[in-house]
Computed example of a mutant assay.
Amino acid sequence: MEKENVPQDKGNLTKNNLKELLYATDENGDYTTTLSSGWEPKTIALSNSIDDINERIADAKQQVVNGEVSPICYYMEVNKMDLTILASYVGLWKWRVKRHFKPNIFAKLNDRTLQKYADAFEISVQELKNIKTD
């Protein structure tokens, strides 16, 4: 893409006065860097992804409220983690972390294990045990 044709659409980046660094060709055909404020298709895709993430967070929160899963599932979604990432952060096997998703197992976890999760999510143990339901 030529430097003068780099899209400058309004999007998520313009809200915060941010620009994205892109490569384009200059008038001599050489690659150079240039800034873009956004590109509509990319903005739409990003917006859709954010909507999906927010929906997954809301679903996880509702499952916690319904007693179907432990708060670990909710905070995992809030922090955009998956089972593998969370397991590596807390230093436990994936099957053990998955087992901690069960509310009855979560209720029996010791303070040391709860602290590992709280540290991974950068919250207190108290926040981990009691998510805000409003």
Rank of each mutant, 00 (worst) to 15 (best):
I72Y: 04
K42D: 04
K132I: 09
V65Q: 10
E55N: 09
G11R: 13
R56Y: 00
L109F: 05
K129S: 00
A118R: 01
N104Q: 08
I53L: 14
L114I: 03
Y74F: 14
M1N: 07
K108D: 11
N48G: 03
F106G: 05
G67Q: 06
A45K: 11
Y31H: 07
Y75L: 04
E20Y: 02
P103Q: 09
V64H: 03
Q126S: 10
E27C: 01
D9S: 15
K132N: 12
L21A: 03
A24D: 11
L114K: 12
D52C: 11
D9C: 12
T25P: 00
E77Y: 10
K42A: 07
D134L: 06
E4R: 11
L46D: 05
W95K: 14
C73L: 14
Y31L: 14
S124F: 05
L35N: 02
N5A: 13
I50V: 02
L109R: 01
I57S: 01
F101H: 15
F101M: 13
N66P: 01
T113S: 06
H100L: 08
K19S: 10
K42H: 03
R56L: 00
V90G: 08
K94S: 15
K116R: 11
Y89M: 09
T133I: 12
I53W: 14
M1C: 06
A58D: 08
S36E: 00
V78A: 08
T33G: 00
L128G: 02
D52Y: 12
L35F: 09
G11E: 13
M81Y: 14
K132Q: 10
D52K: 14
T34Q: 05
S49I: 11
L92K: 15
Y31S: 03
A118Y: 04
N48T: 05
E55W: 10
A60C: 09
Y117R: 08
S37L: 01
G91L: 15
E40A: 06
K116M: 05
D111N: 13
F101N: 08
K10T: 15
R96A: 13
I105G: 01
L109W: 07
E77S: 08
D59P: 00
L21G: 00
V78R: 11
T25W: 07
I72A: 02
L13D: 12
L18M: 02
V65Y: 09
I72E: 03
A120E: 00
K132G: 01
L46G: 04
W39S: 04
N5V: 08
P103R: 07
Q115D: 06
R99M: 15
R56T: 03
A118L: 05
K61W: 05
R112M: 04
